[in-house]
């Protein structure tokens, strides 16, 4: 059961999605898949947390925690379970590189 305290802890939640198959394509991940919720360039205009201010290590740690269920979020536990280690690392690097 999720309590309010756990939920508050997830407010700086992040949502990410990656694509695979770097060998076959020019793009290994599609960080724009996250923009539908978290805003273009990681800047969210509404109540969903922005990502642009996060550094790469924080993104990596949050995504891994969501995937392993160590932090209870809303949709991010479900979505992070679809990501591989390499994708999480790639997305962390990408979002870490954004300017605030």
């Amino acid at each position: 059961m999720l309590g309010p305290k756990t939920l508050l802890a997830t407010v700086p939640a992040i949502c990410l999605l990656a694509a695979a198959s770097a060998e076959e394509s020019g793009f290994s991940v599609m960080p724009e898949m996250c923009a539908g919720c978290h805003g273009q360039g990681g800047l969210s205009p509404g109540p969903i947390p922005s990502l642009a201010h996060l550094d790469a290590e924080a993104v990596l740690s949050l995504l891994e925690s969501f995937r392993e269920g160590e932090i209870e979020a809303t949709v991010m536990n479900r979505i992070a379970r679809g990501l591989t280690d390499a994708e999480i690392a790639s997305l962390a690097t990408y979002f870490g590189s954004l300017e605030e």
Binding site: A35, G36, C37, H38, G39, Q40, S44, P45, G46, P47, I48, T74, V75
Partner: peptide, 13 residues
């Protein structure tokens, strides 16, 4: 809140 946030983000995008 996230439903409203999704709408704000995706329409801005």
């Amino acid at each position: 809140d996230y439903a409203r946030g999704w709408y704000a983000s995706i329409t801005a995008e």
